[in-house]
Write a protein that binds this DNA or RNA. Structure first.
Length: 609
DNA sequence: GCCGTTTTCGGCCCGACTGTTTTCAGTCG
Protein backbone atom coordinates (compact mmCIF):
# COMPACT_ATOMS: atom_id res chain seq x y z
CA UNK A 1 0.00 0.00 0.00
CA UNK A 2 1.26 3.42 -0.94
CA UNK A 3 1.79 5.55 2.17
CA UNK A 4 -0.57 8.48 2.48
CA UNK A 5 0.96 11.84 1.61
CA UNK A 6 0.54 14.85 3.88
CA UNK A 7 -1.83 16.29 1.33
CA UNK A 8 -4.04 13.21 1.44
CA UNK A 9 -4.01 13.13 5.24
CA UNK A 10 -4.81 16.85 5.34
CA UNK A 11 -7.70 16.21 3.01
CA UNK A 12 -9.18 13.48 5.22
CA UNK A 13 -9.05 15.85 8.19
CA UNK A 14 -10.64 18.57 6.10
CA UNK A 15 -13.47 16.23 5.16
CA UNK A 16 -13.98 15.37 8.83
CA UNK A 17 -14.17 19.08 9.55
CA UNK A 18 -16.88 19.47 6.90
CA UNK A 19 -18.77 16.46 8.27
CA UNK A 20 -18.81 17.95 11.78
CA UNK A 21 -19.99 21.24 10.33
CA UNK A 22 -22.82 19.32 8.67
CA UNK A 23 -23.65 17.77 12.04
CA UNK A 24 -23.65 21.25 13.64
CA UNK A 25 -21.03 20.15 16.13
CA UNK A 26 -19.45 23.31 17.51
CA UNK A 27 -15.69 24.03 17.42
CA UNK A 28 -14.60 20.60 16.25
CA UNK A 29 -14.75 21.69 12.61
CA UNK A 30 -12.30 24.51 13.27
CA UNK A 31 -9.99 22.20 15.20
CA UNK A 32 -9.89 19.68 12.35
CA UNK A 33 -9.49 22.39 9.75
CA UNK A 34 -6.55 23.90 11.59
CA UNK A 35 -4.87 20.52 11.92
CA UNK A 36 -5.53 19.93 8.23
CA UNK A 37 -3.97 23.27 7.25
CA UNK A 38 -0.97 22.66 9.48
CA UNK A 39 -0.33 19.22 8.05
CA UNK A 40 -0.66 20.41 4.49
CA UNK A 41 2.06 23.02 5.03
CA UNK A 42 4.41 20.66 6.88
CA UNK A 43 7.82 20.22 5.33
CA UNK A 44 8.32 16.75 6.80
CA UNK A 45 5.98 13.87 6.10
CA UNK A 46 3.64 12.83 8.91
CA UNK A 47 5.02 9.31 8.61
CA UNK A 48 8.60 10.53 9.11
CA UNK A 49 7.53 12.64 12.07
CA UNK A 50 5.83 9.65 13.65
CA UNK A 51 8.77 7.33 13.00
CA UNK A 52 11.14 9.94 14.42
CA UNK A 53 9.29 10.82 17.60
CA UNK A 54 6.07 8.83 17.94
CA UNK A 55 2.90 10.35 19.40
CA UNK A 56 4.84 13.05 21.18
CA UNK A 57 6.22 14.39 17.88
CA UNK A 58 2.76 14.25 16.28
CA UNK A 59 1.32 16.33 19.11
CA UNK A 60 3.94 18.96 18.48
CA UNK A 61 2.38 19.70 15.10
CA UNK A 62 0.35 22.93 15.30
CA UNK A 63 -3.29 22.20 15.95
CA UNK A 64 -2.71 18.53 16.63
CA UNK A 65 -3.49 17.37 20.15
CA UNK A 66 -4.04 14.01 21.75
CA UNK A 67 -7.20 13.18 19.82
CA UNK A 68 -6.03 13.94 16.32
CA UNK A 69 -2.60 12.46 17.04
CA UNK A 70 -4.34 9.19 17.85
CA UNK A 71 -6.23 9.39 14.57
CA UNK A 72 -2.98 9.91 12.73
CA UNK A 73 -1.30 6.99 14.45
CA UNK A 74 -4.24 4.79 13.55
CA UNK A 75 -4.11 6.00 9.98
CA UNK A 76 -0.39 5.30 9.67
CA UNK A 77 -0.65 1.86 11.23
CA UNK A 78 -3.81 0.56 9.60
CA UNK A 79 -4.42 2.87 6.69
CA UNK A 80 -7.88 3.52 8.07
CA UNK A 81 -9.50 6.27 10.07
CA UNK A 82 -12.57 4.90 11.91
CA UNK A 83 -13.95 8.33 12.75
CA UNK A 84 -13.84 9.27 9.08
CA UNK A 85 -15.44 6.00 7.99
CA UNK A 86 -18.19 6.49 10.54
CA UNK A 87 -18.96 10.02 9.38
CA UNK A 88 -18.74 9.07 5.74
CA UNK A 89 -21.35 6.37 6.37
CA UNK A 90 -23.64 8.99 7.85
CA UNK A 91 -23.00 11.39 4.94
CA UNK A 92 -22.00 9.34 1.91
CA UNK A 93 -21.27 12.47 -0.13
CA UNK A 94 -18.26 13.52 -2.17
CA UNK A 95 -17.26 16.48 -0.04
CA UNK A 96 -14.12 17.01 -2.09
CA UNK A 97 -15.74 17.71 -5.43
CA UNK A 98 -18.87 19.37 -4.08
CA UNK A 99 -16.96 21.90 -1.99
CA UNK A 100 -14.97 22.86 -5.05
CA UNK A 101 -18.06 24.30 -6.66
CA UNK A 102 -17.86 28.05 -5.93
CA UNK A 103 -20.50 29.07 -3.44
CA UNK A 104 -21.06 25.56 -2.12
CA UNK A 105 -19.90 24.94 1.46
CA UNK A 106 -20.63 22.57 4.29
CA UNK A 107 -24.15 23.81 5.05
CA UNK A 108 -25.17 23.72 1.42
CA UNK A 109 -23.78 20.20 0.99
CA UNK A 110 -25.77 19.12 4.04
CA UNK A 111 -29.01 20.65 2.83
CA UNK A 112 -28.58 19.22 -0.66
CA UNK A 113 -28.00 15.79 0.86
CA UNK A 114 -30.90 15.95 3.32
CA UNK A 115 -33.46 17.40 0.91
CA UNK A 116 -32.45 15.90 -2.42
CA UNK A 117 -30.04 13.08 -1.58
CA UNK A 118 -27.33 14.73 -3.68
CA UNK A 119 -23.95 13.02 -3.28
CA UNK A 120 -21.75 14.47 -6.02
CA UNK A 121 -21.40 17.20 -8.62
CA UNK A 122 -23.09 15.20 -11.39
CA UNK A 123 -26.22 14.75 -9.25
CA UNK A 124 -26.11 18.39 -8.22
CA UNK A 125 -25.95 19.51 -11.84
CA UNK A 126 -28.87 17.27 -12.80
CA UNK A 127 -31.00 18.51 -9.89
CA UNK A 128 -30.19 22.14 -10.62
CA UNK A 129 -31.06 21.73 -14.30
CA UNK A 130 -34.40 20.17 -13.33
CA UNK A 131 -35.13 23.16 -11.08
CA UNK A 132 -35.24 21.05 -7.91
CA UNK A 133 -32.62 23.08 -6.07
CA UNK A 134 -34.55 26.34 -6.23
CA UNK A 135 -37.53 24.67 -4.56
CA UNK A 136 -35.61 24.05 -1.33
CA UNK A 137 -36.44 26.53 1.42
CA UNK A 138 -33.71 29.12 1.71
CA UNK A 139 -32.61 28.55 -1.88
CA UNK A 140 -33.85 30.49 -4.87
CA UNK A 141 -33.56 30.67 -8.61
CA UNK A 142 -30.42 32.79 -8.33
CA UNK A 143 -28.68 30.28 -6.09
CA UNK A 144 -29.56 27.51 -8.49
CA UNK A 145 -28.21 29.51 -11.42
CA UNK A 146 -25.04 30.30 -9.46
CA UNK A 147 -24.47 26.62 -8.76
CA UNK A 148 -24.77 25.76 -12.46
CA UNK A 149 -22.40 28.56 -13.41
CA UNK A 150 -20.05 27.44 -10.66
CA UNK A 151 -19.94 23.91 -12.04
CA UNK A 152 -19.27 25.21 -15.55
CA UNK A 153 -16.46 27.48 -14.32
CA UNK A 154 -14.94 24.73 -12.24
CA UNK A 155 -14.70 22.58 -15.36
CA UNK A 156 -13.46 25.33 -17.64
CA UNK A 157 -10.44 26.34 -15.60
CA UNK A 158 -9.48 24.03 -12.77
CA UNK A 159 -6.01 24.04 -11.40
CA UNK A 160 -3.66 26.88 -10.68
CA UNK A 161 -1.66 29.02 -13.07
CA UNK A 162 2.11 29.25 -13.21
CA UNK A 163 3.58 32.33 -11.53
CA UNK A 164 5.44 33.01 -14.77
CA UNK A 165 2.14 33.27 -16.63
CA UNK A 166 0.33 35.37 -14.04
CA UNK A 167 2.94 37.83 -12.76
CA UNK A 168 3.20 39.85 -16.01
CA UNK A 169 -0.60 40.02 -16.20
CA UNK A 170 -0.83 41.04 -12.56
CA UNK A 171 1.70 43.84 -13.04
CA UNK A 172 -0.12 45.12 -16.10
CA UNK A 173 -3.39 45.06 -14.16
CA UNK A 174 -1.79 46.90 -11.25
CA UNK A 175 -0.55 49.61 -13.64
CA UNK A 176 -3.98 49.90 -15.22
CA UNK A 177 -5.69 50.25 -11.86
CA UNK A 178 -3.17 52.85 -10.70
CA UNK A 179 -4.35 54.97 -13.64
CA UNK A 180 -8.03 54.65 -12.76
CA UNK A 181 -9.71 57.92 -11.92
CA UNK A 182 -9.84 58.23 -8.11
CA UNK A 183 -7.07 55.71 -7.38
CA UNK A 184 -4.10 57.00 -5.43
CA UNK A 185 -2.08 53.79 -5.25
CA UNK A 186 -2.47 50.06 -5.91
CA UNK A 187 -0.54 46.91 -5.14
CA UNK A 188 -0.77 43.27 -6.19
CA UNK A 189 -1.06 41.07 -3.08
CA UNK A 190 -1.99 37.43 -2.48
CA UNK A 191 0.07 34.48 -3.63
CA UNK A 192 1.47 36.58 -6.50
CA UNK A 193 3.15 38.88 -3.99
CA UNK A 194 4.39 35.87 -2.02
CA UNK A 195 5.70 34.56 -5.38
CA UNK A 196 4.24 31.11 -4.99
CA UNK A 197 5.05 28.65 -7.79
CA UNK A 198 1.44 28.56 -8.80
CA UNK A 199 -1.29 31.14 -8.43
CA UNK A 200 -5.02 30.81 -7.83
CA UNK A 201 -6.05 34.39 -8.52
CA UNK A 202 -4.79 37.98 -8.56
CA UNK A 203 -5.56 40.07 -5.45
CA UNK A 204 -5.15 43.82 -5.74
CA UNK A 205 -5.50 46.48 -3.06
CA UNK A 206 -6.12 50.08 -4.07
CA UNK A 207 -6.35 53.31 -2.11
CA UNK A 208 -9.09 55.60 -3.25
CA UNK A 209 -11.90 57.82 -2.11
CA UNK A 210 -14.73 56.91 -4.46
CA UNK A 211 -14.78 53.13 -4.28
CA UNK A 212 -17.89 52.67 -6.36
CA UNK A 213 -16.44 54.66 -9.23
CA UNK A 214 -13.25 52.58 -9.04
CA UNK A 215 -15.22 49.33 -9.09
CA UNK A 216 -17.19 50.52 -12.10
CA UNK A 217 -13.93 51.06 -14.00
CA UNK A 218 -12.68 47.65 -12.87
CA UNK A 219 -15.64 45.63 -14.12
CA UNK A 220 -15.60 47.60 -17.40
CA UNK A 221 -12.05 46.49 -18.22
CA UNK A 222 -11.64 44.75 -21.56
CA UNK A 223 -11.42 40.98 -21.20
CA UNK A 224 -13.74 40.71 -18.19
CA UNK A 225 -15.76 37.55 -18.77
CA UNK A 226 -17.70 37.27 -15.55
CA UNK A 227 -18.46 39.25 -12.42
CA UNK A 228 -18.72 37.03 -9.35
CA UNK A 229 -19.57 39.89 -7.05
CA UNK A 230 -19.42 43.66 -6.99
CA UNK A 231 -19.64 45.60 -3.77
CA UNK A 232 -18.73 48.98 -2.37
CA UNK A 233 -15.22 47.95 -1.36
CA UNK A 234 -14.68 44.51 -2.89
CA UNK A 235 -15.17 43.17 -6.40
CA UNK A 236 -14.36 39.78 -7.83
CA UNK A 237 -14.13 39.05 -11.56
CA UNK A 238 -12.87 36.52 -14.08
CA UNK A 239 -10.99 37.42 -17.24
CA UNK A 240 -11.55 35.59 -20.50
CA UNK A 241 -8.12 33.94 -20.15
CA UNK A 242 -9.40 32.06 -17.10
CA UNK A 243 -7.61 34.17 -14.49
CA UNK A 244 -9.67 35.50 -11.59
CA UNK A 245 -8.97 38.88 -10.01
CA UNK A 246 -10.13 40.54 -6.77
CA UNK A 247 -10.00 44.27 -6.22
CA UNK A 248 -10.37 45.76 -2.80
CA UNK A 249 -10.48 49.51 -2.13
CA UNK A 250 -9.46 50.80 1.30
CA UNK A 251 -8.83 54.19 2.92
CA UNK A 252 -5.26 55.46 2.89
CA UNK A 253 -4.56 54.88 6.57
CA UNK A 254 -5.48 51.20 6.15
CA UNK A 255 -3.29 50.48 3.12
CA UNK A 256 -0.60 48.56 5.01
CA UNK A 257 -3.11 46.55 7.00
CA UNK A 258 -5.11 45.67 3.89
CA UNK A 259 -2.01 44.77 1.92
CA UNK A 260 -0.84 42.60 4.79
CA UNK A 261 -4.17 40.89 5.15
CA UNK A 262 -4.55 40.17 1.43
CA UNK A 263 -0.99 39.07 0.98
CA UNK A 264 -1.48 36.18 3.41
CA UNK A 265 -0.79 33.42 3.80
CA UNK A 266 -3.96 32.76 5.68
CA UNK A 267 -2.17 30.93 8.47
CA UNK A 268 0.40 33.75 8.74
CA UNK A 269 -2.47 36.24 9.11
CA UNK A 270 -4.12 34.16 11.78
CA UNK A 271 -0.85 34.04 13.71
CA UNK A 272 -0.56 37.84 13.51
CA UNK A 273 -4.11 38.26 14.72
CA UNK A 274 -3.44 35.99 17.63
CA UNK A 275 -0.44 38.06 18.61
CA UNK A 276 -2.65 41.16 18.46
CA UNK A 277 -5.24 39.39 20.56
CA UNK A 278 -2.69 38.43 23.19
CA UNK A 279 -2.02 42.13 23.61
CA UNK A 280 -5.76 42.81 23.89
CA UNK A 281 -5.76 44.40 20.43
CA UNK A 282 -7.64 43.65 17.23
CA UNK A 283 -6.09 43.25 13.79
CA UNK A 284 -8.14 43.37 10.62
CA UNK A 285 -7.73 44.69 7.09
CA UNK A 286 -8.36 48.24 8.31
CA UNK A 287 -5.62 48.35 10.87
CA UNK A 288 -4.45 47.45 14.32
CA UNK A 289 -6.83 48.68 17.01
CA UNK A 290 -6.87 48.84 20.77
CA UNK A 291 -9.94 49.28 22.94
CA UNK A 292 -10.86 52.81 23.91
CA UNK A 293 -10.52 53.24 27.65
CA UNK A 294 -14.06 54.59 28.04
CA UNK A 295 -15.67 51.91 25.91
CA UNK A 296 -15.04 48.51 27.40
CA UNK A 297 -17.28 46.71 24.92
CA UNK A 298 -16.78 46.05 21.25
CA UNK A 299 -19.39 48.30 19.66
CA UNK A 300 -18.12 47.82 16.15
CA UNK A 301 -20.41 44.85 15.72
CA UNK A 302 -23.31 47.11 15.01
CA UNK A 303 -26.19 45.62 13.10
CA UNK A 304 -27.01 46.50 9.55
CA UNK A 305 -26.17 45.42 6.06
CA UNK A 306 -22.51 44.84 5.34
CA UNK A 307 -20.82 48.03 4.31
CA UNK A 308 -22.88 50.13 6.69
CA UNK A 309 -20.73 49.17 9.64
CA UNK A 310 -18.72 51.96 11.14
CA UNK A 311 -15.25 50.60 11.52
CA UNK A 312 -13.40 51.21 14.73
CA UNK A 313 -16.28 52.32 16.95
CA UNK A 314 -15.09 51.64 20.49
CA UNK A 315 -11.65 50.95 19.10
CA UNK A 316 -8.71 53.26 18.77
CA UNK A 317 -6.53 53.08 15.67
CA UNK A 318 -2.97 52.06 16.53
CA UNK A 319 -1.35 51.37 13.16
CA UNK A 320 -2.15 50.33 9.60
CA UNK A 321 -0.72 52.71 7.03
CA UNK A 322 2.33 50.55 6.34
CA UNK A 323 3.11 46.90 6.89
CA UNK A 324 6.39 47.82 8.58
CA UNK A 325 4.63 49.65 11.42
CA UNK A 326 2.20 46.77 11.87
CA UNK A 327 4.98 44.25 12.37
CA UNK A 328 6.81 46.70 14.60
CA UNK A 329 3.78 47.23 16.88
CA UNK A 330 3.37 43.47 17.13
CA UNK A 331 6.95 43.17 18.32
CA UNK A 332 8.23 41.58 15.10
CA UNK A 333 10.83 42.60 12.58
CA UNK A 334 9.49 43.10 9.06
CA UNK A 335 8.78 39.79 7.30
CA UNK A 336 9.25 39.69 3.53
CA UNK A 337 6.16 38.42 1.66
CA UNK A 338 8.05 35.39 0.32
CA UNK A 339 8.53 34.14 3.89
CA UNK A 340 4.91 34.41 5.05
CA UNK A 341 4.10 30.71 4.98
CA UNK A 342 4.19 29.81 8.69
CA UNK A 343 7.42 27.90 8.47
CA UNK A 344 9.08 29.61 11.41
CA UNK A 345 9.08 33.22 10.19
CA UNK A 346 7.08 34.53 13.15
CA UNK A 347 9.48 33.09 15.72
CA UNK A 348 12.50 34.29 13.72
CA UNK A 349 10.99 37.78 13.43
CA UNK A 350 10.33 37.89 17.16
CA UNK A 351 13.94 36.98 17.88
CA UNK A 352 15.34 39.25 15.15
CA UNK A 353 16.81 36.24 13.39
CA UNK A 354 15.28 36.57 9.92
CA UNK A 355 17.82 36.08 7.11
CA UNK A 356 18.89 38.91 4.79
CA UNK A 357 17.37 37.39 1.66
CA UNK A 358 19.16 37.36 -1.68
CA UNK A 359 17.97 40.48 -3.55
CA UNK A 360 16.28 40.78 -6.93
CA UNK A 361 19.34 42.63 -8.31
CA UNK A 362 22.07 40.53 -6.73
CA UNK A 363 22.81 38.17 -9.63
CA UNK A 364 25.94 38.96 -11.62
CA UNK A 365 25.92 35.92 -13.87
CA UNK A 366 23.81 33.11 -15.29
CA UNK A 367 25.27 29.62 -15.24
CA UNK A 368 22.86 27.83 -17.57
CA UNK A 369 22.11 29.11 -21.08
CA UNK A 370 21.52 27.27 -24.36
CA UNK A 371 22.26 28.58 -27.85
CA UNK A 372 21.59 27.65 -31.46
CA UNK A 373 24.54 25.27 -31.22
CA UNK A 374 21.92 22.88 -29.84
CA UNK A 375 18.27 23.50 -28.99
CA UNK A 376 18.48 27.22 -28.23
CA UNK A 377 16.95 29.72 -30.63
CA UNK A 378 19.73 32.33 -30.74
CA UNK A 379 23.45 32.63 -31.39
CA UNK A 380 26.06 32.85 -28.65
CA UNK A 381 26.66 36.49 -29.54
CA UNK A 382 22.97 37.41 -29.40
CA UNK A 383 22.60 35.63 -26.07
CA UNK A 384 25.57 37.57 -24.73
CA UNK A 385 24.08 40.89 -25.80
CA UNK A 386 20.70 40.00 -24.30
CA UNK A 387 22.34 38.96 -21.03
CA UNK A 388 24.12 42.30 -20.87
CA UNK A 389 20.85 44.14 -21.47
CA UNK A 390 19.37 42.09 -18.62
CA UNK A 391 22.08 43.49 -16.32
CA UNK A 392 24.39 40.48 -16.17
CA UNK A 393 28.20 40.59 -16.27
CA UNK A 394 28.80 37.04 -17.45
CA UNK A 395 27.04 33.90 -18.66
CA UNK A 396 28.08 30.31 -19.02
CA UNK A 397 27.20 28.70 -22.36
CA UNK A 398 25.85 25.26 -21.47
CA UNK A 399 24.61 23.53 -24.58
CA UNK A 400 23.35 19.98 -24.35
CA UNK A 401 25.67 17.03 -24.86
CA UNK A 402 25.51 14.11 -27.22
CA UNK A 403 23.09 11.67 -25.59
CA UNK A 404 20.35 14.18 -26.10
CA UNK A 405 20.17 13.45 -29.81
CA UNK A 406 16.95 15.38 -30.22
CA UNK A 407 18.72 18.60 -29.29
CA UNK A 408 21.70 18.02 -31.54
CA UNK A 409 23.80 17.47 -28.44
CA UNK A 410 27.49 18.33 -28.59
CA UNK A 411 30.29 15.76 -28.49
CA UNK A 412 33.84 16.49 -27.33
CA UNK A 413 34.94 17.90 -30.70
CA UNK A 414 31.93 20.22 -30.91
CA UNK A 415 32.59 21.47 -27.37
CA UNK A 416 36.17 22.27 -28.29
CA UNK A 417 35.01 24.17 -31.37
CA UNK A 418 32.56 26.08 -29.21
CA UNK A 419 35.31 26.98 -26.72
CA UNK A 420 37.25 28.55 -29.61
CA UNK A 421 34.19 30.52 -30.67
CA UNK A 422 33.70 31.74 -27.10
CA UNK A 423 37.32 32.85 -26.93
CA UNK A 424 36.90 34.77 -30.16
CA UNK A 425 33.77 36.51 -28.93
CA UNK A 426 35.38 37.41 -25.59
CA UNK A 427 38.27 38.97 -27.49
CA UNK A 428 35.80 40.92 -29.62
CA UNK A 429 33.76 42.16 -26.63
CA UNK A 430 36.90 43.26 -24.80
CA UNK A 431 37.65 45.64 -27.71
CA UNK A 432 34.20 47.20 -27.64
CA UNK A 433 32.79 49.77 -25.19
CA UNK A 434 29.64 47.63 -25.04
CA UNK A 435 28.49 45.04 -24.20
CA UNK A 436 30.74 44.54 -21.21
CA UNK A 437 30.01 40.88 -20.87
CA UNK A 438 32.16 37.85 -20.34
CA UNK A 439 31.37 34.43 -21.78
CA UNK A 440 32.38 31.30 -19.92
CA UNK A 441 32.54 27.87 -21.50
CA UNK A 442 30.41 25.07 -20.14
CA UNK A 443 27.98 22.32 -20.93
CA UNK A 444 24.78 20.72 -19.72
CA UNK A 445 26.19 17.22 -19.54
CA UNK A 446 23.78 14.34 -19.56
CA UNK A 447 23.71 11.98 -16.59
CA UNK A 448 23.24 8.50 -18.00
CA UNK A 449 21.13 5.80 -16.36
CA UNK A 450 24.06 4.48 -14.32
CA UNK A 451 25.23 7.94 -13.19
CA UNK A 452 28.11 8.16 -15.65
CA UNK A 453 28.39 11.16 -17.97
CA UNK A 454 28.30 11.34 -21.75
CA UNK A 455 31.42 13.54 -22.14
CA UNK A 456 34.92 12.42 -21.19
CA UNK A 457 36.66 13.86 -18.11
CA UNK A 458 39.48 15.40 -20.14
CA UNK A 459 37.10 17.63 -22.03
CA UNK A 460 35.09 18.47 -18.91
CA UNK A 461 38.33 19.57 -17.24
CA UNK A 462 38.92 22.21 -19.92
CA UNK A 463 35.49 23.83 -19.49
CA UNK A 464 35.03 26.78 -17.10
CA UNK A 465 31.86 25.47 -15.50
CA UNK A 466 30.14 22.12 -15.92
CA UNK A 467 26.51 21.39 -15.14
CA UNK A 468 25.13 17.86 -15.18
CA UNK A 469 21.48 16.91 -15.43
CA UNK A 470 19.04 14.01 -15.62
CA UNK A 471 17.09 13.98 -18.89
CA UNK A 472 15.96 10.37 -19.09
CA UNK A 473 14.94 7.38 -16.98
CA UNK A 474 12.74 9.53 -14.76
CA UNK A 475 11.00 6.58 -13.15
CA UNK A 476 13.86 4.69 -11.50
CA UNK A 477 13.33 3.49 -7.95
CA UNK A 478 14.37 5.94 -5.26
CA UNK A 479 17.50 4.04 -4.28
CA UNK A 480 18.77 3.58 -7.82
CA UNK A 481 17.92 7.18 -8.77
CA UNK A 482 19.68 8.55 -5.69
CA UNK A 483 22.80 6.49 -6.39
CA UNK A 484 22.74 7.64 -9.99
CA UNK A 485 22.72 11.33 -9.07
CA UNK A 486 25.28 10.84 -6.31
CA UNK A 487 27.66 9.15 -8.73
CA UNK A 488 27.46 12.20 -11.00
CA UNK A 489 28.09 14.49 -8.02
CA UNK A 490 31.21 12.55 -7.14
CA UNK A 491 32.75 13.38 -10.52
CA UNK A 492 35.38 16.04 -9.72
CA UNK A 493 34.52 18.02 -12.88
CA UNK A 494 30.80 18.35 -12.23
CA UNK A 495 30.43 21.79 -10.67
CA UNK A 496 26.63 21.99 -10.58
CA UNK A 497 23.64 19.67 -10.80
CA UNK A 498 21.03 21.37 -12.99
CA UNK A 499 17.28 21.09 -12.22
CA UNK A 500 17.82 18.27 -9.74
CA UNK A 501 14.38 16.65 -9.67
CA UNK A 502 13.42 17.13 -13.31
CA UNK A 503 9.86 18.04 -12.43
CA UNK A 504 7.66 20.09 -14.76
CA UNK A 505 4.96 21.78 -12.72
CA UNK A 506 1.50 20.38 -13.58
CA UNK A 507 3.09 18.10 -16.20
CA UNK A 508 5.81 15.80 -14.86
CA UNK A 509 6.46 14.53 -11.36
CA UNK A 510 9.88 14.98 -9.77
CA UNK A 511 12.20 11.97 -9.88
CA UNK A 512 12.32 9.97 -6.63
CA UNK A 513 15.35 10.95 -4.58
CA UNK A 514 16.57 10.64 -1.03
CA UNK A 515 16.97 14.39 -0.82
CA UNK A 516 18.83 14.37 2.50
CA UNK A 517 21.42 12.00 1.13
CA UNK A 518 21.79 14.09 -2.03
CA UNK A 519 22.26 17.26 0.01
CA UNK A 520 24.75 15.57 2.32
CA UNK A 521 26.72 14.43 -0.74
CA UNK A 522 26.58 17.93 -2.22
CA UNK A 523 28.04 19.26 1.00
CA UNK A 524 30.78 16.64 1.15
CA UNK A 525 31.79 16.92 -2.53
CA UNK A 526 31.36 20.68 -2.89
CA UNK A 527 28.79 20.23 -5.66
CA UNK A 528 26.47 23.17 -6.24
CA UNK A 529 22.72 22.53 -6.66
CA UNK A 530 20.94 24.72 -9.16
CA UNK A 531 17.67 26.56 -8.76
CA UNK A 532 16.37 26.43 -12.32
CA UNK A 533 14.31 29.59 -12.75
CA UNK A 534 12.19 28.48 -15.67
CA UNK A 535 8.55 28.98 -14.58
CA UNK A 536 7.46 25.39 -15.08
CA UNK A 537 10.59 23.99 -13.41
CA UNK A 538 11.46 26.12 -10.35
CA UNK A 539 13.60 23.19 -9.39
CA UNK A 540 14.82 23.09 -6.53
CA UNK A 541 11.56 23.86 -4.75
CA UNK A 542 11.44 26.10 -1.68
CA UNK A 543 11.63 23.19 0.76
CA UNK A 544 14.80 21.77 -0.78
CA UNK A 545 16.38 25.22 -0.96
CA UNK A 546 15.78 25.65 2.75
CA UNK A 547 17.45 22.28 3.38
CA UNK A 548 20.46 23.40 1.34
CA UNK A 549 20.64 26.69 3.26
CA UNK A 550 20.55 24.81 6.55
CA UNK A 551 23.16 22.31 5.37
CA UNK A 552 25.48 24.99 3.99
CA UNK A 553 25.18 23.69 0.43
CA UNK A 554 25.75 26.37 -2.23
CA UNK A 555 23.24 27.01 -4.98
CA UNK A 556 23.08 28.86 -8.28
CA UNK A 557 20.06 30.59 -9.80
CA UNK A 558 19.99 30.07 -13.55
CA UNK A 559 17.60 31.01 -16.33
CA UNK A 560 17.94 27.83 -18.42
CA UNK A 561 17.45 30.37 -21.24
CA UNK A 562 16.77 28.96 -24.69
CA UNK A 563 16.33 32.39 -26.30
CA UNK A 564 17.29 36.03 -25.73
CA UNK A 565 13.99 36.78 -23.96
CA UNK A 566 14.44 34.12 -21.33
CA UNK A 567 16.81 36.02 -19.05
CA UNK A 568 13.68 37.62 -17.61
CA UNK A 569 12.81 34.36 -15.86
CA UNK A 570 15.75 34.77 -13.45
CA UNK A 571 13.35 36.79 -11.32
CA UNK A 572 11.26 33.67 -10.62
CA UNK A 573 14.35 31.77 -9.56
CA UNK A 574 15.35 34.55 -7.18
CA UNK A 575 11.83 34.56 -5.75
CA UNK A 576 12.06 30.80 -5.24
CA UNK A 577 15.42 31.20 -3.49
CA UNK A 578 13.92 33.84 -1.21
CA UNK A 579 11.02 31.51 -0.41
CA UNK A 580 13.68 29.02 0.67
CA UNK A 581 15.26 31.58 3.02
CA UNK A 582 18.44 31.88 0.89
CA UNK A 583 20.86 34.78 1.36
CA UNK A 584 23.30 36.27 -1.13
CA UNK A 585 26.06 34.11 0.35
CA UNK A 586 24.14 30.94 -0.47
CA UNK A 587 24.03 31.76 -4.21
CA UNK A 588 27.29 31.46 -6.13
CA UNK A 589 26.33 33.55 -9.15
CA UNK A 590 26.12 36.62 -6.97
CA UNK A 591 29.92 36.46 -7.20
CA UNK A 592 31.81 38.36 -9.91
CA UNK A 593 33.15 36.32 -12.82
CA UNK A 594 36.65 36.70 -11.44
CA UNK A 595 35.72 35.48 -7.95
CA UNK A 596 33.65 32.64 -9.31
CA UNK A 597 36.43 31.43 -11.63
CA UNK A 598 38.92 31.61 -8.76
CA UNK A 599 36.64 29.33 -6.74
CA UNK A 600 36.04 26.95 -9.64
CA UNK A 601 39.78 26.46 -10.10
CA UNK A 602 40.10 24.97 -6.62
CA UNK A 603 39.34 21.27 -6.02
CA UNK A 604 35.58 20.86 -5.55
CA UNK A 605 35.59 19.72 -1.96
CA UNK A 606 37.63 22.75 -0.84
CA UNK A 607 35.85 25.41 -2.87
CA UNK A 608 33.07 26.55 -0.58
CA UNK A 609 34.70 26.13 2.81
C1' DG B 1 -10.77 18.97 19.47
C1' DC B 2 -7.04 22.34 20.73
C1' DC B 3 -4.72 25.43 23.73
C1' DG B 4 -2.33 28.46 27.66
C1' DT B 5 2.59 35.81 29.71
C1' DT B 6 -5.65 35.32 32.33
C1' DT B 7 -2.84 27.16 31.63
C1' DT B 8 -6.62 22.12 33.06
C1' DC B 9 -11.50 25.67 31.93
C1' DG B 10 -13.59 28.30 28.72
C1' DG B 11 -12.60 30.41 25.09
C1' DC B 12 -11.84 29.56 19.82
C1' DC B 13 -9.64 35.31 13.43
C1' DC B 14 -12.56 38.65 11.21
C1' DG B 15 -15.07 41.16 7.80
C1' DA B 16 -17.36 41.67 2.84
C1' DC B 17 -20.76 40.12 -0.21
C1' DT B 18 -24.88 37.50 -1.77
C1' DG B 19 -29.31 35.69 -1.54
C1' DT B 20 -33.09 35.39 0.82
C1' DT B 21 -35.65 37.12 4.04
C1' DT B 22 -37.24 41.37 7.23
C1' DT B 23 -32.59 40.38 10.75
C1' DC B 24 -29.51 36.59 9.08
C1' DA B 25 -26.99 32.40 7.31
C1' DG B 26 -23.64 30.84 4.29
C1' DT B 27 -19.43 31.32 1.73
C1' DC B 28 -15.03 33.09 0.94
C1' DG B 29 -10.43 34.67 1.68
Amino acid sequence: MKPLSNKEIAYLLYEISVFYTMKDVPFKPMAYERASDAIESLKESVRDIYERGGMKALEEIDGVGKGIAEHLENLLKTGRLPEYDHLKKEFPVEVHELSEVPGVGAQTIKTLWKKLGIKNVAELEKAAKEGLVSKIKGFGVKTEQKILEGIAFMRSSGGRHLLGAVLPEARALEDTIKKFSGVEDALVCGSVRRRRETIGDIDIIAIGTDAEKIMAQFVALPGVAHIYGQGATKTNIRFGNGIDADLRVVPKRSFGAAVNYFTGSKSHNIALREIAQEKGWKLNEYGLFKRQATRPNDLSRSVGRAGDKRQGEGWEFVAGKTEKELYEKLGLSYIEPELREMTGEIEAAREGKLPALVGYHDLKGDLQTQTDWTDGADSIEDMARAAHTAGLEYIVITDHTRSLAMTGGADEAKLHRQMKEIEKLNAKFSQLPSPRIQLLSGAEVNIKKDGSLDIDDETLATLDCVGAAVHSHFTLEKKEQTERVIRAMKNPHVDIIFHLTGRLINRRKPIELDIDEVIATAKRTGTVLEIDAFPDRLDLNDEYIRKCVNAGVKMSIDSDAHSTEHFAVLEYGIAQARRGWATKEDIINTLSAHDLLTKLKKPKELRWK
